[in-house]
Nucleic acid binder design. Structure first.
Lengths: 176, 176
DNA sequence: ATCTCGTTCATACTTTCGGGTGATTTTAAC
DNA sequence: GTTAAAATCACCCGAAAGTATGAACGAGAT
């Protein structure tokens, strides 16, 4: 257990050593400055470079990596128990394209093949929360056109025509 | 859009502004240095701070966020037992005889808080299933304008601005 | 009998959505 | 180092959604 303090404060120790080295370097540079008067700009430049590097190092070291959770659907338990008592049959001349109420089995199988990218899932989630494209764009710091492109791809991949259908499907498939 | 050029070159513009500000600051500090000879260390310190910040900013801006992938395997369970009849009385307005289950009662109570009429609940349900106003109008044998009026009142009562918000709220409240 | 409310419908207008197309830039993979 | 996919942005245009306003009608309530 004697190593614990060293391990625990190794960052601090390393930082201290680095600072010491840096100060030494500064002193040395200062001495050089006295000798060569015109090295002033070099001095400033060196300071800038060194501290820029320090900032980069700090940022890289001190930012904790973002944890990304990748949901992998292992098993598909499909339970279809459905009454054919819908609104439908009221006024539905022809089934257009991907009828939502035809069957769910295919949808489940397609869920894995939906192949929505991370960004698209993000947009889909915000969409389901009722945000407009404009609001989503502002939240994600991108332009409105970008969001429109995303939504278009989402609808294409999900084989739906409207955002409300996409939301409904997404909630059924538990992908949001 | 008149904002487009601004958005397009926003990075360049921001960077330019930042550089200009930095140069101005440096000039000002240099001037101070001439006045007060002993401000040298302050000068250096400022340089160090500024460039450390610059480094941090650079690192945060120019590096992709480190992502740590955590694969989570979940068992997917999709249950597809929908009950559209709860809010739907299409073509059978008098079919509210006896067996209201508890779930339905709760829905009705929560619906009452929003003061949504039966017809409005019906429209809301179809809306949540992804139908367009036109499709809802055809299903309910009324005109598109009527559906628009209904949706407007729904949004007003629910205090939302878009159908997606209404859908989200309705699902949260288990109205549908 | 009057009044309110729900439902219906209409016109006119503005905003948002969505399709289509093309482009550049990152990122990832090979 | 090329290639493929993802992400970004732009422009146009038609469709759908949403706002505002007014009006008609029937059913219940007062």
């Amino acid at each position: 257990m004697a190593i614990n303090p060293l391990i625990k404060y190794k960052h601090a120790i390393l930082y201290g050593i680095a600072l010491a080295g840096l100060l030494f370097l500064l002193k040395w540079l200062e001495w050089r400055l006295v000798i060569f008067d015109h090295a002033f700009e070099v001095y400033i430049g060196a300071i800038a470079v060194v501290f820029t590097a320090l900032g980069i190092w700090l940022a890289l070291k001190l930012t904790k990596p973002k944890v990304e959770r990748v949901i992998v659907e292992v098993e598909k338990t499909v339970y279809v128990e459905r009454r054919e008592e819908e609104y439908g049959t009221v006024g539905r001349p022809e089934a257009e394209g991907g009828g939502m109420n035809v069957e769910q089995r295919v949808n489940v199988e397609q869920a894995a093949r939906l192949d929505l990218s991370k960004r698209e899932l993000e947009v889909l989630g915000l969409m389901a929360q009722g945000f407009s494209n404009q609001e989503i764009a502002e939240k994600l710091f991108v332009s409105l056109n970008t969001i429109k492109t995303h939504t278009s791809r989402i609808f294409e991949k999900m084989d739906v025509k409207r955002r409300t259908q996409a939301i409904d499907m997404a909630k059924r498939l538990n992908i949001i």
